[in-house]
Amino acid sequence: MELSLVLGAWVAAGMTLFIFSFLYKDNPFYRAAEHLYVGVGMAWFIQLYTYSVIIPKVYKPLVDTIKAGDWVNMWLVLIPTVLGLSLITQFIPKISWISRYGFTFLMGYGAGLILPAGLATDFMNQIVGTIEPFANFFSLSAGAMINAIIILIGTLSVLFYFFFSVEHKGAIKKVSAFGVYFLMIYFGASFGNTVMARFSLLYGRFDTLVKYSKGEYFYATNWIILGLLIYFICEKIFFKAVKLKKT
């Protein structure tokens, strides 16, 4: 077995167990793993943005267009780059107002992008999805017919729940309460589904830990668990002794 593989196994098993140790209580191992995770995550994103955005979408096109004397395309790269760079002026209070140009563009672009797309998916196509089964209702099977009616009733009653312009009293209260039942049924199903998916992730981690507990990895999992246990027992005894001494 290569040394790098063994080392990787120890790091993987160690980090997994350090994070799991949070289930018992906050401890220095968890803190170390947490800070390492944050740092590594940040470093990963810096290199990712450098190699997938800054170099291919800013540096290379700028160099190429300048070399080719293609001034139109150069401006098409330069303007968004300057707008992006304007965000960094946040760190210099005297000229931080420049960042507003970048942010205004970002907000406008975001709203412009999301508005028609949101209307299309959350409104227009949602109506189509609800009413489409009624277009050929009489050629549907009995089950599909019931399904279409349930979807229509469920959609309308849930919409009543999210109606904010009127007080939920009388008939509206009853309809919206009916909508809440639909919501809760959905939440229950979604909860069960996600929990199952999470368990499969957990099994994956356990599988890794079992794999690294073998002799070829020098019993990484076993030694780390033992180390953690010794630490927690010693900590308990030590703190108990300190507490007794104080009292």
Partner: peptide, 21 residues
């Protein structure tokens, strides 16, 4: 928008039922 949705979905479902018949 929600009111429009409720009206459209209700009216069109009934209209489609009649039209499909």
């Amino acid at each position: 928008g929600k009111l429009l949705f409720i009206i459209l979905a209700t009216v069109l479902s009934i209209t489609f039922l009649i039209m499909s018949k």
